[in-house]
Structure formats: C-alpha cells, structure tokens
Design a binder for these strands. Structure first.
Lengths: 249, 249
DNA sequence: GCTGGGAGAGGCTTA
DNA sequence: TAAGCCTTTCCCAGC
C-alpha cells in the first residue's frame, strides 16, 4: 500500500474516532516512564476511538508497546510513514516508523454496553454480609467498607462478646500482602475505636508462608468456597481454621 | 460477509498461526476465574499465533475479554458464527457469538525480536551497586539479590560500623507495600545473620502515609533521581531524608 | 507446577 | 489530582 495514501486514510479515521488497524513492518521507540526500542519487524498497530495506541506482536494478550489517550499525528519521511503518539503528564513519546504497510483497516464502532462481571471481590463481600453467622455464631455486621485514611475495611463486624472483628475478603489465594493489609486495618480500627479488635482473613486458600505470618500477628483465617454463577456469585461454605493445616493449601 | 465463508477462512488462519482480526456484532460469555457477559455490540476480536484471543472495544488499551493459549474452534448455529475458546487448568470457557461480520483480516506475522527495555528496577539496582557511597560514606555492597525463603533482597550492604543494611529499590513512588516488603526482608536478614541490621528504602518519592509507616518501623528512606537514556538508565543523585519532609512528595 | 514480585502495570472509585 | 486497591491482572524468573 502507498504510504501517502495510508497516511491520508489514517488521519481521517483517527479524526472520526474509528478503530484502526495497521499491519506492517515497523521500528518502535518509546520514551517516558521507561525507555524501549523494538527492532524492525512486522506488527499490528491498533488505534482506538479514545486515541489509545497499542502495538501487538503475534503472541501474548498484552501489547508490546502502548499509550493511552495520546496525541496522534503522522508524517512521511525518507520513504517511511512515521506515526507519533505523545502525551503530557507524564511526558511520554511513542514513535512508530513504518517501512512497509501490508494493510490498513478502519471501522466505525459505537460505544458499547459495559461488561457485566460476576464474582468480584466486592460482590463476594456483599454476599458474605448477608449472613456472617456462617463464619461464627453471633457474628453481626456493623458496617461495610468503612473508608479509613488508609484503605478500606471490607467488613466490620461484632462478635458475641462485643469485640470488633475486621474481616478482609480475598477472592483468590491470600498472600503476604493480604495479611499485612489486614494487620494495618485491624490496628487502625483498634486505635480509633479504642476497643479490643480481632482481624480475620477470609479467602479460598492461603499461602503457607502467609499463614505463618498471619498466626504470628495474632490474626485469624477462614476458608470459604464460592461458585461463580449467573446472575451472581454465591458462597458455598465457610470453614474456620482447624488443626489440620494441610487442608488450607 | 457470509458466516460460512468467515468460518472457513478463520479456521485456516488459526491453523496457520496467523494473526486474525474479526470485526462484527457479537455477544460474549466468559466463565472461569470469574464470570461475565457482554451485551450484543460491535467489537474487534484479535486472535494471535499463540492462540490468545482478546476482545477489544473501541476504547482503552486492555481487552474487555481475553484468553491466553486457548483451544479455538468455531461453528455455525442459528445463523450465527460461534467462536469457542477453551482452556483447561484453570478451566475457562469463552464463547463469542457473531450475529454479523463486518470484516475478517488475517496476516502471517513471523516471530519478532524482543523489546529492549531500559530503566527497569533490576537495571537501576545494578547501577546503584556500582557505588553505594553515594548513599552514605563507607557503605559497601555485600551481595545483590540474595534469595531468601520469602522474596528477594535488592541490595545487601554493610555500613561503616559494620551493620548490615538491607536496601530495597523502587523505580517509582514507594507505597505501603514497599515499606512492609522492606520490613519483612530486614527482619529476616537480622534473624538469619544475628546481627544489627538497618533497612533502607530507595525510591524517587514516597507516599506520605507510607513514610509515616516507615518511620514508625524504624526504617530509613533515601530519594534518588534517575535518567532513562540509551543504552541504559543512570542514577542522577541520591538525597537522604532530611528535616524538610515536603521535599519528598 | 507453585511462588514471588515487577510492570511504562491498567483502570476504577473516592476523598 | 492523589491515594488506595482490585484485576479473569499479565508475565517472567526461580525453584
């Protein structure tokens, strides 16, 4: 395809906010939050209606280079088509030099309905709130997602003895980070409320070393199973930590 | 475009490991690590040579649905073209139902040279190792990236008094996680070596609340600037924590 | 295969 | 805008 012709069509489709795909041999330079160079090779460059640009190799889901919401323009130079994508704040530049263009396709694509996702952490958290007595008899919700200065408490509850219980929910295997997060929240709640507070991590499983850390910190772990269905995820069962540690891995 | 024709061409290009782009009106269902539904709408489905599938709306860099390394096959049913992408371990299914196909493009794209990236954390860490006296007179490297049971120590050094210094390098603004990570490493080294150990966080900046946490934990912070150039990133300067906290944000 | 951790993380929500 | 955090994170390297 003629570079000049490609340049014209590209400029048009970008201004019309179409989705454009350019397939060709290119060399890429990025400079911004890091710097990178991509040797000459055949790739697909995807430009979307919000002016995001991404460069795809023929493997992996993620683009090898990209820029969100860029200022896009192109020029012909030395028998190459140069596509510039720039951004201020943070300052970033992406330069794609096309030596040969094998194809250019542009489509008008309207705004789409958004994805409906089931089984997110937030949803599971809500679901759990329905009945905390599953976890422990007499456990009652106090408030959900109370914003503190540092992060958010997933669930705040009160146990039979009137102690506060900070519950952190994870939709997947809990790790170090989960434990330290819970510890931070728990200590903060304890400090603010001036009242004995327990910290409980609720997850489908936990990494062995994270469990050790959790126990050292005097926190609790409970395992729960959930099923992701339609229209929502449902909690299948909760099992508090028992003697057999093996069960948790 | 005829659905039957599209089916044939798609099957061919998938088996040839070409990069394929299908533009059309589709409805999408995903079930696996979570579950999601995407209402009927016009999108671009990208299939790569490694059999990754991703569904792109006309905005944002990331695909709205995707699957890595899938088993792909398609069928015609009720005047729709159904594209199935399945995966075992973890079990996942992605079902894309096309009602209308506006375009199908396939290109043979060879394996490409990989990206050369400058300014990664690892590179900065190496760069810093060249001369630790920048940070503090008499500071000497002991070993880099010593693997412990839990994570990796970026830099292990020894100060003028013979104390061990665990240095954690972050290429961007340090946060809670950075601090807790450093604290873990530091304590572990202290325990293993049985020797007074300092913990130092080295980053371009740090979040205010993370700095508070760091100070409470008796750790140190030093700010460093770097320039990402070609062929490598270079350290511009290091400034240890001073009286004026403001300077660190 | 699991685990740990970085990433130009991306992207969302709320203060 | 910044902070905080979830993600079907993705992806890689090490064991």
């Amino acid at each position: 395809m003629e570079l000049e012709q490609a340049k014209q069509r590209l400029a048009e489709s970008v201004s019309r906010k179409e989705m454009s795909m350019i397939i060709g041999t290119c060399y890429v330079e990025y400079w911004g939050r890091a710097a990178s160079k991509l040797a000459k090779g055949k790739r697909m460059v995807l430009i979307k209606g919000d002016h995001s640009v991404s460069i795809h190799q023929n493997k992996l889901v993620r683009p090898v280079n990209y820029m969100m919401n860029a200022d896009i323009y192109c020029e012909i130079e030395n028998e190459t088509l140069i596509l510039h994508a720039n951004k201020k704040k943070p300052k970033e530049t992406l330069k794609i030099i096309f030596y040969k263009i094998d194809g250019l396709h542009a489509y008008e694509i309207e705004e789409n309905a958004d994805l409906r996702l089931f089984g997110s952490e937030r949803e599971l958290s809500k679901e759990l709130m329905q009945d905390l007595s599953f976890i422990e008899p007499g456990l009652k919700p106090v408030n959900q997602e109370i914003p503190f200065r540092k992060g958010i408490v997933d669930i705040l509850a009160e146990d039979q003895e009137g102690n506060l219980v900070v519950i952190e929910v994870k939709r997947r295997k809990a790790d170090f980070n989960s434990v330290t997060q819970l510890e931070r929240y728990m200590k903060q709640v304890e400090k603010i409320k001036g009242k004995k507070t327990r910290g409980m991590l609720l997850a489908p499983s936990i990494q062995k070393s994270a469990l050790e850390l959790l126990e050292q910190a005097g926190l609790e772990f409970a395992k729960f199973e959930f099923e992701i269905g339609n229209p929502k995820a449902t909690i299948k069962g909760i099992q508090k930590k028992q003697k057999l540690l093996n069960e948790f891995f």
